[in-house]
Write a protein that binds this DNA or RNA. Structure first.
Lengths: 226, 226
DNA sequence: ACAATAGTGTCTGTGAGACAGTATCGA
DNA sequence: TCGATACTGTCTCACAGACACTATTGT
């Protein structure tokens, strides 16, 4: 790609390009991550992130979506490129560059009856995973740590948290999601004020417990209205 | 990298992995980007970002550093992974995945007498480059746009701007850098208050024009002191 | 009536934005 | 003394944090 030092790419040693997917969801008040068990030899038997090799006719993002579909049967969920990991020895077999993607999905869309049926994938608490000295395949522990940090950082100034909620949600639920991602408690009144201009009421109410029901909201699409 | 669908990577079509480097600096009150002229055929003659193919024994970050060294003779400058571009047709010859890196360097460290001597690289105004319909090789226009946006975004909550200043700097100079990256004027008094806890005086003064000289500062390393 | 959670009004401190002023250099 | 730029004090307003209060459901 260089002028002075340009060479025919065909003359270069090629390498395999893979994608690893970090599919996050929220369940039981915790941030969970989809893991699979490796069948084949490097790190066989260990938990790992789902991943596939990028095919010649697809983009890395396509490959990430395919990996998600193969494990869960889901399509069209939120995907965001995380980082590209390229340590020389990250795969003991050969040189592999991996582009990591984060996927965020509301728990209710993850139906274990469909795609998870055969894949054998499961959800695990992301933060516990990082605290334990739990063995993971490849450099996946580092990848997860990178993703967890990014997630916490981007909550403040982006809409990522909303991808973990459904199309409509209650403010108490949304607050719980923010608290989980940030790792601390928030004050109800202030949180609601901060959210006020980003959401709009649907008119519906959430059924549920033996207490006052909460209103349903949806994310407001910010039309720059000036 | 997948459990159920794991395959021997050797059986997969490999692809070339390249890095492209966006070396930014500030000159004459503008944000400038290092460009080269392509010699070889796809897009020969067009301006392009410096880049190299990733060798089997180096990381993408190593490759980016090498690309910078080959064009400028510089080592040890600030590097940050930007994004990985993998459109299927981004190189007409063959499939190439490119990991883009941003490099930030103070103008005074870029000596055109040394490395730039033979390389034929030059600096160009980054914002003008994006406004003009100027032809650029490959998808480099999109890469530059991505970098410009990221740069503006990260000024607010990181220390990147300081990498464009030297080891020591004056507050007026630092303010100019922030203004260039953000694309707007800032108020002197407020800017200084915001910077106050991130910088410390060196004791030195900047020589210069026929007016009051300004104090020199350096970036304070935040020791979490609680 | 009570438990439990949803939702609101308001005080306070911090910090950004805006402006007006003072300080220090060379000529 | 003057032009030019460095640097500072302070007012205002918006907003985050913190707390106390009211509202509405099921039992």
């Amino acid at each position: 790609m260089n002028g002075m030092n340009a060479q025919d790419p065909a003359k270069h040693a090629s390498m395999s390009v893979a994608v690893d997917v970090l599919l996050f969801t929220i369940e039981d008040g915790r941030l969970k991550l989809l893991l699979i068990r490796r069948q084949d030899d490097p790190f066989a038997g260990l938990p790992a992130l789902p991943g596939v090799f990028v095919r010649p006719d697809e983009t890395p993002e396509d490959a990430a979506a395919r990996a998600i579909f193969e494990e869960t049967g889901l399509t069209g969920i939120y995907l965001e490129q995380l980082y590209t990991f390229g340590a020389v020895d990250r795969d003991p077999r050969m040189r592999i560059i991996s582009v990591a993607y984060m996927a965020l999905v509301p728990r209710e869309e993850l139906t274990f009856s469909a795609g998870l049926r055969t894949s054998g994938a499961w959800l695990e608490d992301a933060d516990e995973l990082l605290q334990d000295g739990r063995p993971l395949a490849f450099d996946h522990r580092q990848i997860i740590r990178t993703a967890r940090t990014r997630l916490a950082g981007k909550v403040e100034y982006t809409d990522i948290a909303f991808h973990l909620a459904g199309e409509t949600f209650t403010l108490p639920d949304l607050q719980r999601i923010f608290e989980i991602l940030l790792g601390g408690k928030l004050y109800k009144a202030n949180f609601r004020k901060k959210m006020a201009d980003r959401i709009e009421e649907t008119g519906g109410m959430a059924a549920g417990g033996s207490h006052r029901p909460s209103r349903l909201y949806r994310l407001k699409k910010e039309e720059p209205c000036s």
